[in-house]
């Protein structure tokens, strides 16, 4: 498997990288960990003329506790997230999902920023970050903006990121006390991507669910909030019948856009999404208690 010809840049600063993106706008592709882009290039499904490797830029790999949450540098690897005590204690589902992405080699190289920017319809991280909430910090040569995660995933392999922007940071909000989280995934046997993955972040006060963010990956063309499920959960005591009813609506937003392939029919995917929504909610509730 041999890629087609491309020009390679390895900038050492964000300024230099964003300048290159502006200069070669439309032609250039950002290379982060390389575990999505390079396989596509080797299959010649992607043939970018210019590759801007941001792996040489220092200071993009960190997990930092902030006053109102946690900031994660865009080049932080799955492995770093899986083993970070800050992430383990603040967002157990992110640590858990990061530990279960693909295999160790991929986890050592693949990054949170790369995963979000690539927006694979079956990626784990987009759903997990969507359930946590927060924003993506994007920079161009001249500007910097924060994109709310709810508006970040736009379509299949498409995000709100412009082609002269680089993700530098992911800002996650602090979770209220009484919040439990979980990520439950059924993996495709060959690629180990999610046939369906459900991330749940649930806050319970007394006996009542005061907040719930549920996100689904793998089932449709992008990571999606299961808002109907959230609505059923919110304001209620989460008894098993309530959870069952909520979980049964987990694929409702995806509707007719359910994926179908040789590994799972749309019907089976929908079923798995409901089942794993139930698992994720159960676990999040248990963790909240």
């Amino acid at each position: 498997m041999v890629t087609s010809n491309f020009e390679y840049f390895a900038p050492t600063s964000v300024d230099e990288a964003t300048s290159l993106l502006s200069k070669y706008r439309g032609e250039a592709k950002v290379l982060a960990g390389g575990h999505s882009l390079i396989p596509m290039m080797k299959l010649r499904l992607a043939e970018p003329g210019i590759l801007v490797d941001i792996g040489q830029i220092e200071g993009l790999s960190y997990v930092r506790k902030e006053e109102d949450g946690v900031a994660i540098g865009s080049m932080t690897t799955y492995r770093e997230m899986a083993t970070s005590s800050v992430i383990q204690s603040n967002y157990p589902l992110l640590a858990d999902a990061s530990a279960r992405v693909a295999d160790l080699q991929v986890r050592n190289r693949g990054t949170i920023g790369g995963s979000l920017a690539h927006s694979d319809p079956a990626g784990d991280i987009p759903a997990v970050v969507l359930a946590i909430g927060g924003s993506v910090v994007a920079r161009t040569r001249r500007s910097k903006r924060e994109i709310n995660i709810d508006r970040f995933q736009v379509d299949l392999l498409t995000t709100a990121l412009r082609d002269n922007e680089i993700i530098t940071e992911i800002k996650l909000p602090g979770l209220a006390s009484g919040t439990g989280t979980a990520y439950s995934k059924f993996h495709q046997p060959a690629s180990h991507y999610a046939i369906t993955g459900v991330a749940a972040v649930i806050t319970i006060s007394g006996e009542t669910c005061t907040d719930a963010r549920i996100a689904v990956t793998g089932a449709g063309d992008k990571a999606t909030r299961a808002r109907r499920t959230e609505r059923i959960l919110k304001g209620k005591e989460l008894t098993p019948p309530v959870i069952r009813r909520a979980a049964s609506r987990a694929a409702a937003e995806i509707g007719d856009a359910l994926n179908e392939d040789i590994h799972a029919s749309a019907e089976y995917r929908e079923h798995l999404t409901r089942i794993h929504a139930g698992y994720a909610i159960d676990q999040a509730v248990a963790a909240a208690g």
Binding site: L43, Q188, P189, A190, S191, D261, I262, H263
Partner: peptide
């Protein structure tokens, strides 16, 4: 897995489940 017209759907390690 082949389609009826002879395309291979399980044509890589992403879809052929070793």
């Amino acid at each position: 897995v082949y389609t009826d017209d002879g395309q291979l759907l399980s044509g890589s390690l992403m879809d052929y489940a070793l």
